[in-house]
Design a protein around this nucleic acid. Structure first.
Lengths: 276, 276
DNA sequence: AGCTGTGAACGCATTCACAGCC
DNA sequence: GGCTGTGAATGCGTTCACAGCT
């Protein structure tokens, strides 16, 4: 299946200490592209092929891959299966990652049913919610466990990655509990800035922010064309009395109900974090 | 409709033409921080206060805000309400953005019920799915409309932003239909690279990718120094013979079922896009 | 001849540090 | 004195273009 007959064994001379963050963020995209090519029965691909399949340009792709080692063949291209494995290994997908999901509202439900988990690589070992009425409920492959069991579950299964899908108000408190239990990577869906000790990674997924970014560009498209110095429709003097209050709920994100969590709302001061 | 020849010559009267993309991506975070401060009754805040509340450092925040104009007061700080309005206006949240959601699977459900939409600013005008069995079903505030109605809805409501929550296989086709109907901004939850004409923005939200990025860093923490700072359970040598094939479904993302869409799977070649 | 891998150039983002104003 | 706003310095990411291998 996958050739290991490369005399040119992966250079472990540690070119791989320090793959740029931007590259790391693209490796999963390349992996997906390779999987797609593989499924279509394509065994070999040039950087151009791969790049267009991944939606980047070929120079960037080659540069990115060069941080992993020399896995291509000059004059030929890349062996799809071989490269796929190398990237998967680099990312850490050749091992199993137990995951807990906290907060089984609408979003938590969607995540729990998400087939990308069900596959090997990431495995949902527990769903946790604070609402006693929900505990025991069956969602996807799992059953909702009480919040009190979370720390024990994390320890027992060696969970390193936690998913926070609670409302914003509960997120920091849940995050603190996860970290205390031993979780060192958090994927945050709540519209809140999480403060964590150094050594813990946080990534956030925020629908509201993405929509607002789109709105910003959209607004520009609409007003941009006319040779307008500054093109908002409503020209107003730069400083002016405050108008109507902003729409409520604007600060809310993808977070979902998490039953009656006693939100202690610790006055933790957020700290510059984001994938140290 | 683009009579702008003035490349980089125009006077810098208002610094607001050309806010860096990285700054744009943070404005929603600042907005949220300001909303939070406002709710706590805080009327004024320094760049330091704001920055810590938003999870960035103060130099970055000041620089970012400087692209919008001079909305602070030296020696004092920023007026929370005033700045909040200015940012909202800059993003385009003082106007209404009708949105359609395509693909009402688990994720689509969560999105439809998402309170961040219900608020003014973004308004869900339609949920669309291809499964006839689902059409008519009530989800959140709306009722699922047939896929055939999508183009009409987009035109009638002047929808500029579309949310794709379909499975990967359907995403490109849905995207094409949205664009043909007049949508110029797409938020993509499907694990697929979307190809769009220039002038259309695509942003993607991808759980699978975020998890993989976390896994990468997590793996590093474990293997880091042989001094084993804090160990994950299973240690493995970094390079080793190729093991069993990769987990299937690894390429799948957050996309959900979209009933029986006739996926034509056009052989569109993805193109460098991402918020041109 | 063709394609990868990579130094070098370039452009964008972040951080520094201080001038300018309250 | 304190805090904003911003040029200048630095660091990071992307693109170019070609040397080097098959």
């Amino acid at each position: 299946m996958t050739p290991r007959n490369r005399r040119n064994a992966p250079r472990e001379d540690r070119a791989d200490r320090g793959i740029p963050e931007a590259t790391v963020a693209r490796l999963p995209v390349y992996l997906r592209a390779l999987t797609s090519l593989s499924e279509r029965g394509i065994a070999s691909a040039s950087s151009e092929d791969l790049a267009s399949s991944a939606g980047v340009n070929s120079a960037k792709l080659r540069k990115d891959l060069s941080y992993l080692g020399s896995y291509g063949t000059r004059g030929v291209g890349y062996d799809v299966e071989y490269l796929r494995y190398q990237i998967a290994r680099e990312i850490g997908l050749t091992q199993d990652w137990p995951v807990v999901i906290v907060g089984i509202g609408n979003l938590g439900h969607a995540l729990a049913n998400y087939s990308g988990f069900a596959s090997r690589g990431f495995r949902v070992v527990a769903l946790v919610d604070t609402d006693p009425a929900r505990v025991g409920e069956r969602v996807g492959e799992s059953t909702i466990a009480p919040y009190e069991d979370m720390a024990g579950i994390v320890r027992d299964h060696g969970v390193a990655i936690g998913v926070v899908a609670t409302p914003a108000g509960a997120a920091q408190s849940v995050c603190d509990d996860l970290v205390a239990a031993g979780v060192t990577s958090i994927l945050n869906f709540a519209p809140a800035v999480l403060s964590v000790p150094s050594g813990v990674d946080v990534r956030k997924v925020d629908l509201s922010i993405e929509l607002q970014i789109l709105a910003y560009h959209e607004q520009r498209k609409a007003h941009g064309g006319q040779a307008r110095g500054r093109g908002r429709a409503d020209e107003r003097p730069l400083s002016e009395p405050l108008p109507e209050p902003l729409p409520e709920g604007l600060g809310e994100g993808l977070g979902e109900r998490l039953g009656g969590l006693s939100v202690s709302e610790p006055a933790t001061v957020p700290v510059e974090v984001e994938t140290a």
